[in-house]
Simulated assay, not measured.
Amino acid sequence: MNSNNAQSFSNGFALVGDIGGTNARFALWRGEVLESIQVLACADYPRPEDAVRDYLQRVGQPLSAVENVCLACAGPVGAGDFKFTNNHWVIRRESFRAELGLSHLLLVNDFSTMAWAASRLSEEHLVQVRPGKALEGRAKLIIGPGTGLGVGSLMPLPSGGWEVLPCEGGHVDLPVTSERDFALWQLLREKYGHVSAERVLSGSGLENLYRMSCQLDGVEPACATAAEIGERAMAGDAYADAVLEHFFLWLARVAGNAVLTVGGLGGVYITGGIVPRFLERFQRSGFAEAFRSRGKTSGPYLDPVPVWVMTADHPGLFGAGVALEQALRNEG
């Protein structure tokens, strides 16, 4: 990428996308702002190129106006072509670029874009849920319970930019810190064998936690889905609320462990589809205390670490824009 392409990007716009198993979200990225956001069903298009063409037609932009594209893809992204796990699309890098006439195509892991978003989101899109002081020059941790449990970190660069370090932190062992934790862990182990953090800290994990809590307590389940558990908790159902509280406490433990591992004294950013939906309840939970309530060494280490919840509507798209901007700047 030469400086002319970087300059054209700064003066115009790029196309960014956030593509999952079911939907593809597209937007134009101009001046650090998302424009013309649309959601298209992946099943409606034989190839991702067809979806891009249709999106541009819908928003009144010619294909020739787009030179730079960043797509956040659900799954591990390598240097080669990308095949989606949960839909039929394949992005063949060279043919994709050639067919659409692109100067630059950047593919990034979808959760990595959440980390890129955390590096640039303004205060209006962040809600602080744990006070503290973020240390300059230290890593930031991003964690997000949703369909799965995403974990990543942002490392500051000497140039002033950031490096996103994707990982598989959702598959660490689920921490056990109480007799009830242990009883639930035993039920999870009977069902799954290895008990990862994601077995509890995700949409399906919340359902696991509810069902196995009911099994442990001899309670007839009244909910079948994570949405129902959350709705009943918000409506005043004491049992569903207690399960949701346990979910938040387990999130605190896993997040705290991750901070200790990566040295994330730059702060923690929580995203995903669950916590922002129940933000007020999360703020009243025991998360903040459980996060630092540990041993004589780890407790003081974690005590000053602030925690925010990301409330932006489309952090994946925003992060794709930030990732592309930095990549072009580095190459320009």
Rank of each mutant, 00 (worst) to 15 (best):
I274E: 08
V172W: 10
L201F: 08
L216G: 04
A24T: 08
E67R: 15
R329M: 05
T147I: 05
V69R: 02
F13V: 04
W29Q: 04
L209H: 01
G273E: 08
L157R: 15
T261F: 10
F278L: 05
T225Y: 03
W308R: 10
R138G: 02
E220R: 15
A226C: 14
G148S: 13
I270P: 01
L302V: 06
N330G: 13
T261L: 11
K140W: 13
N330Y: 09
S8T: 15
G256T: 05
V268C: 03
G148D: 13
I229P: 02
G316D: 05
D237M: 06
V108Y: 00
W29P: 04
E124T: 14
D18R: 00
N330W: 14
V151L: 12
Q128H: 07
C70S: 08
P76N: 12
S202W: 12
T297K: 06
S298G: 00
R294N: 03
P156V: 04
S10V: 05
L251E: 07
F26Q: 01
I229E: 07
D44I: 04
Q186L: 13
E331F: 00
E198H: 09
E190L: 12
E32C: 13
G132W: 10
R294C: 03
A323W: 02
W185R: 06
P62T: 08
P315M: 05
W116N: 03
N4H: 14
G193A: 11
G236W: 09
G203K: 06
S3L: 14
A117Y: 01
K296M: 09
G299C: 09
R97D: 00
L216F: 11
L317Q: 04
Y269E: 02
N2F: 10
T225D: 06
A323R: 00
L34I: 08
R120G: 07
G203V: 03
K296F: 03
E35W: 12
S103Q: 15
K296A: 12
S112T: 09
V164A: 08
N11P: 00
Q283V: 08
V307G: 04
A224I: 11
E94T: 10
R284E: 14
M155T: 12
A51N: 00
G266C: 05
S153G: 13
A226W: 01
G263A: 02
G17R: 03
P276A: 14
S153T: 06
S8W: 11
V39W: 01
E331N: 09
W308F: 13
R189V: 01
W185F: 15
E179G: 03
L279M: 11
R211Y: 12
P158T: 11
S122T: 15
R47M: 12
W162C: 05
N257G: 10
F318I: 11
T113E: 00
G256S: 06
A240V: 04
V309Y: 10
E190V: 06
F287E: 00
H194P: 10
H314M: 01
W162G: 01
L216R: 14
K140C: 15
G161R: 14
P175N: 00
G272E: 09
G160E: 04
V108G: 00
A227H: 13
A183L: 09
P300S: 02
C73R: 06
